[in-house]
């Protein structure tokens, strides 16, 4: 069953289109990551879903019922803000109890629920502390517990881990994912960190310039990017301009690439191939040849920069596979057809 449906949601700030005609369906219990570069409209989209901004056009449906005009406080969503927005005048316990008390829960009721939530986020012994006296990771947990206090219909988080140091961030990613699976709650996390998205998400929604470029499972996003933007944003990739021969065979700089076919009717496209899929060989039995311009030896892996027909192609190989070359030498390249993704957009 779909938990959340967006239909042509658009948000304009004056002449700036922050969110541009976004349509998306999220199934119940899914962990969604909104991924994209800074300024692409992720926060705005999350705020639209939460009702903190009104869309300029489009509809938002929750479990089939329209909520587009419903005020934020009637939506029963839990949200973790980028600044966390913990209430500075309240203790940890009172912060978590806030949504329960606002809804008029009896004292015994909210106290036991707060106890459960403190257990859930491993803060049993910190209930009485003022929130100003917590570490970054603990504040994070308080914000999560507070947002989950009323078992929200949707759990929204805006770059929740960006303020934490790298190690804690990785640990919290795993913890957040496990928590979400345990509770089975539909969750939408905004992030600009693709590693974070890959770690946590069932569904990665790649955004750029206010639009959704691709919404798919993490592996699919990586293996089958829908367009050059996604291919380039997720991991690193080589993008080659290709053209179609008479029989739809892909040509790069006039050289046929074996096994790579363009869709019927498409004359020009781009080919994306990951650096780790590019094979370096002897120029004699290669598809393409080029000149090595730079070698970056990272110890475990070696990145070889090859210039062929004014395009720099990067190949990553392990030290053992590495053929002995030096900058300035000619080298052959093979592009395995199964690793090539033809991008027509």
């Amino acid at each position: 069953m779909s938990a959340l449906t967006l239909e042509g949601v658009t948000k304009r700030f004056g002449s700036l289109v922050a969110v541009d005609d976004v349509s998306l369906t999220v199934l119940k219990g899914t962990f969604v990551c909104l991924l994209g570069p800074s300024g692409c409209g992720k926060t705005t989209l999350l705020r639209l879903i939460a009702g903190l901004e009104a869309p300029s056009a489009g509809r938002i449906l929750l479990a089939g019922a329209e909520v587009t005009g419903l005020p934020t406080h009637k939506r029963d969503f839990g949200m973790v803000f980028q600044s966390l927005a913990l209430f500075p005048h309240l203790s940890v316990r009172d912060n978590i109890a806030y949504p329960l008390r606002i809804r008029g829960a009896a004292k015994a009721e909210w106290e036991s629920r707060v106890g459960e939530l403190l257990d859930l986020v491993h803060l049993q012994d910190h209930g009485e502390r003022p929130v100003s006296r917590l570490s970054g990771g603990q504040r994070q947990r308080v914000a999560i517990a507070r947002a989950l206090a009323v078992s929200p219909r949707l759990f929204l988080l805006d770059e929740p881990l960006s303020a934490l140091d790298a190690k804690l961030r990785e640990a919290m990613q795993v913890e957040l994912r496990q928590l979400q699976q345990k509770l089975g709650i539909t969750t939408i996390v905004v992030t600009h960190d693709q590693r974070e998205a890959m770690t946590m998400a069932d569904l990665v929604v790649v955004m750029g310039d206010g639009r959704i470029h691709q919404a798919a499972a993490p592996v699919e996003i990586y293996r089958k990017p829908a367009d050059a933007f996604v291919a380039d944003f997720i991991g690193s990739t080589n993008l080659l301009d290709i053209a179609a021969s008479g029989s739809s065979q892909a040509l790069f700089d006039g050289v046929p690439l074996p096994g790579v076919i363009l869709p019927a009717g498409v004359q020009r496209a781009r080919l994306s191939i990951r650096p780790e899929d590019v094979r370096l060989t002897d120029p004699a039995n290669a598809t393409l040849t080029g000149r090595v311009t730079f070698l970056r030896d990272l110890g475990g892996t070696v990145e070889t920069f090859v210039e062929a027909a004014d395009t720099t192609i990067v190949a990553v190989s392990t030290r053992r596979e590495q053929t002995q070359v030096a900058a300035g030498e000619q080298i052959g390249i093979r592009l395995p057809a199964e690793a090539c993704v033809v991008l027509t957009r």
């Binding site: 934020t72 406080h73 939506r75 949200m79 980028q82 600044s83 949504p99 947002a147």
Partner: peptide, 16 residues
């Protein structure tokens, strides 16, 4: 004052 404090209160069920 962090403007998201009031927004947080709203997402937690409080009218403005």
């Amino acid at each position: 004052l962090d403007p998201s404090l009031l927004e947080a209160a709203r997402t937690l069920g409080a009218s403005p």
